[in-house]
């Protein structure tokens, strides 16, 4: 069975407080990055999936992200699939 590598990025939804991102952003001017803004912190995951094809691998990764990796009340996710 083909093996794929899945990448899942989990981001907080708009309107959900992102204190980590806000804290990083507040520190930026003092660190010499006054031109950087809009910082949002999130999580990323990568894992292997055995699947018949890329569509099936994506389906598995999306189901995992929806059930476990992200909490849909607070977070949204995106999935990337690469053949190994």
């Amino acid at each position: 069975m083909p093996v794929y590598e899945a990448f899942v990025e989990v981001q907080l939804r708009a309107g959900i407080a992102d204190p980590q991102g806000a804290t990083i952003e507040r520190a930026l001017p003092a660190l010499g990055f006054p031109t950087v803004g809009g910082v949002r912190a999130g999580k990323s995951f990568r894992f292997r999936v055995e699947a018949a094809d890329e569509v099936q691998a994506r389906g598995t990764a999306e189901a995992l992200a929806d059930r476990l990796l992200a909490n849909p009340v607070m977070e949204r996710f995106s999935v990337g699939i690469v053949p190994l």
């Binding site: 407080a17 204190p19 980590q20 804290t23 909490n71 009340v73």
Partner: peptide
């Protein structure tokens, strides 16, 4: 209980971290 969907909503990080 919220993660188990026995109660609605979620608990996010405290204001001000």
């Amino acid at each position: 209980l919220t993660e188990a969907h026995l109660l609605p909503g979620a608990l996010q990080k405290n204001r001000g971290l």
